[in-house]
């Protein structure tokens, strides 16, 4: 084992945290869009892409944030 300092926060944690926040923001926009749909976006009212893509990003981000939380991992890259 090397005695040099190891970075204890992995890149996967940063990825998770960023997309968890992004997911919540985009999901929020999707909910808002249910009531006040933005104009000029093709297929918006039919698909509500931001709603389900925001939900996916939130779940993805939350999973990675939990899975790679700094205290759960010894070191990473």
């Amino acid at each position: 084992m090397s005695d040099k300092p190891q970075h204890t926060i992995t890149i996967w944690f940063f990825v998770g945290a960023l997309f968890a926040v992004y997911g919540v923001l985009i999901l929020g926009c999707g909910v808002w869009g249910l009531f006040y749909p933005p104009e000029g976006i093709v297929l918006y009212e039919k698909l509500h892409v931001d709603l389900w893509w925001g939900a996916f990003l939130t779940i993805f981000g939350a999973f990675y944030t939990y899975r790679f939380w700094p205290t759960k991992t010894q070191s990473g890259e």
């Binding site: 869009g33 933005p38 925001g54």
Partner: peptide, 8 residues
């Protein structure tokens, strides 16, 4: 800009 609303 064609497919993505605010946030996206």
């Amino acid at each position: 800009t064609r497919y993505c609303g605010p946030g996206l």
